[in-house]
Amino acid sequence: MMDTTWIILGATSAMARATARALAAQGAGLLLAGRDTNELALIAADCRLRGARMAEAVAFDARDPATFAPLLARASGEEGELNAAVFTGSMPPQAEIDTNPALIGGMLADNFTGPAEFLHLLAPMLEARGGGTIVGVGSVAGDRGRLGNYAYGASKAAFHTYLSGLGNRLARAGAHVVTVKPGFVDTAMTWGLPGMFLVAPPEAVARAILKAARKRRNVIYAPSFWRWIMLIIRMVPEPIFKKLKI
């Protein structure tokens, strides 16, 4: 792990933090990217003290492509294997979107267009180095448009499709893409929301993510039982699905 570097986009999220800590314990180098640079500085110090070879806070905003180039430049300065994990995302409540559809644009930038544009700029670096892994965090919500969050789900579905294509492209150069679809995770995003069940700790998702990266899995659900829940949800015929309030 001493010569690997991970770019973590959206590094202040609970899942990102758990992943960064697990990578730190393995001695990886970390570029922790996000908007709240004070918070990122705290996370960077924590990762250094927990074993990271290097951990730096870097400003990054999925809605501001001007922030992409400096991060890429910083990453290109690191030798060895380069990897990235994308945790950026936002989930405005569907009800707020219903009253203010203009929210969709920003959400799409957080969940899809921003990360995709960044990864498109990063991909040639991985191809040039002939390896590396990209982990993209999507959501089970992207598997089917549900009444409660279909705008959010659509942005995640777009990201899933992008990641699958990117994986196809990078495989030709020896690099790899993992799509992670978490179920309910115990983070600030789900805290206090009604209807949560089987909520997984972020540390468990982080472990699943790193295992999937190591084993070069293509798509994982985290925790894994969500694969079966979503299989059932996807199989419900549309006429029936339309009557469900889930």
């Binding site: 202040t12 999220s13 709240d36 004070n38 918070e39 705290l42 600030a188 805290w191």
Partner: peptide, 8 residues
């Protein structure tokens, strides 16, 4: 409340 960030 369970803040995850210092600012929260």
């Amino acid at each position: 409340a369970r803040p995850e960030r210092r600012g929260d």
